[in-house]
């Protein structure tokens, strides 16, 4: 079942030029895409490819100038739908410092739940459950500014989660994190997808993060240029490079080894497994 449907959605940014004229910069250009219930969808693209603009179309933060976006059958262009839409599509952004509304962690997580009007005791239960789901319950009473980037993003995920949405959109939420923090956020997202059947839309330019998804969408200059499983996408090395992306190093090596005549499994992401294959061939 499709949870989110984009039909020929277009969103451009107004640009004010020095000479007083206006022009448009492409954000998202004529995109048609379905987000299927329960899937882990990854959206990749270079900086400025429109992937982050597309994310903001998913819960009505932006409304398409042409075409339409609907969530569970509700059109995002109708302002009356926005509250219900946002209850169902949670979103976490890039900079962990810019999404905190309170200086105590549990109060920050509670913010969204308060907004949808959940009374006690369910309110408190949801906050606790959300913090447990991201493994941050021991920090409930602490202030967020001493945490690592990865921990802050897990708090932000808990804040979205506590509203109990059907879809979680991670809008470049790993872009500012160190490798450790990226791993934390990804494993939380994967867990939510597997354990709670939550639909996850991950937006990123780290190609290693593509590996665990069910489906990958590649964007370039506002358009979708490829869709497929991770291995289907990785086999299009040239296309990815043209789009400003790179396959992970191990996969690149596996592919190049295969091209040189070694009988290895291409799209091997584990460097040791690849080493083992070579050892067996020697």
């Amino acid at each position: 079942m499709d949870i989110i449907k984009l039909v020929n959605a277009t969103y451009n940014y107004k640009v004010f030029n020095d000479d007083g004229t206006q022009s448009f910069a492409v954000g998202v250009d004529d995109v048609t895409l379905d987000v299927v219930q329960g899937e882990f969808l990854t959206l990749v693209g270079h900086n400025g490819s429109g992937k982050s603009t597309l994310a903001k179309l998913l819960n009505g933060l932006f409304v398409p100038q042409k075409g339409s976006v609907s969530v569970l059958g509700m059109d995002t262009a109708n302002e009356k739908n926005l509250f219900e839409i946002r209850k169902n599509v949670g979103m976490v952004f890039q900079n962990p410092d810019n999404q905190m509304v309170a200086s105590i962690i549990e109060e920050d997580v509670a913010f969204g739940v308060e907004n949808v009007g959940i009374p006690h005791p369910e309110l408190g239960e949801r906050v606790r459950w959300a913090l447990e789901s991201v493994g941050m319950e021991q920090f409930a009473k602490k202030t967020p500014h001493k945490l690592s980037g990865g921990q802050k993003q897990r708090i932000a995920i808990a804040g979205a989660l506590a509203i109990k949405p059907q879809v979680l959109v991670l809008d470049e939420s790993t872009a500012m994190l160190d490798p450790q923090g990226r791993k934390e956020v990804l494993s939380v997202a994967k867990k939510l997808n597997e354990d709670f059947g939550m639909t996850v839309v991950l937006i990123t330019h780290f190609m290693e993060e593509v590996l665990q998804s069910d489906r990958v969408v590649v964007m370039q200059r506002g358009k979708i240029i490829a869709t497929g499983t991770p291995s289907e996408i990785f086999s299009e090395r040239q296309l990815l490079e043209n789009a400003g992306l790179k396959v992970p190093r191990t996969i690149e090596l596996a592919q190049k080894l295969k091209e040189s005549g070694w009988q290895v499994e291409e799209n091997t992401a584990d460097a040791k497994a690849l080493g083992e294959m070579i050892c067996q061939l020697l």
Partner: peptide, 22 residues
């Protein structure tokens, strides 16, 4: 970004809000 984050978390002013802190 904060405005985006607050909107995404269903903020619509004080009308229907409940309060976490007792």
């Amino acid at each position: 970004e904060l405005a985006f984050a607050m909107n995404s978390r269903c903020y619509e002013g004080s009308t229907k809000r409940t309060q976490f802190r007792v």
